[in-house]
């Protein structure tokens, strides 16, 4: 059975930085949203958590492409992660979560899983 999801509004177009990333807080935790205006699609969202350090930093990496694949380089240990698939280019066993992203008016929305029972953070 597919987990229930919703399209959560996380920020506006004004919050984006061209050719770079920003971090947002979602139902599913920290997510990095990237805006690459020179390619289509231009919006990408992956987990903000760098799997190699466990720290929330991926939105602060340098974006680019490697052999045509849009990537961000972790600012800590410099591994590259595909913005499309979340796969780590240096270690095929490592990947970060990818979130579908869409532009709704001037709102950026991410498709995130909805918690089964509503829980309140302490």
């Amino acid at each position: 059975m597919k987990a229930r999801t919703c399209w959560e509004a996380v920020c506006t177009v004004d919050d984006l930085v061209a050719d770079s990333g920003i971090a947002v807080w979602t139902e599913d935790g920290p997510v990095a949203v990237f805006y690459l205006p020179h390619r289509l699609p231009a919006l990408f969202a992956i987990s903000h958590t760098d799997p190699f350090s466990g720290s929330n930093v991926l939105a602060r990496g340098i974006t680019g492409d490697i052999n045509g694949e849009p990537v961000v380089a972790s600012p800590l240990y410099k591994q590259h992660f595909s913005l499309r698939t979340g796969r780590c280019l240096e270690d095929e066993n490592v990947a970060v979560k990818v979130y579908p992203v869409l532009l709704d008016g001037d709102q950026i929305r991410l498709e995130v899983p909805v918690a089964q029972a509503a829980s309140v953070a302490a």
């Binding site: 390619r39 680019g64 492409d65």
Partner: peptide
């Protein structure tokens, strides 16, 4: 060519 990377951009 391409979009650049963490080598050439800095």
């Amino acid at each position: 060519k391409g979009q650049g990377c963490d080598i050439c951009k800095p």
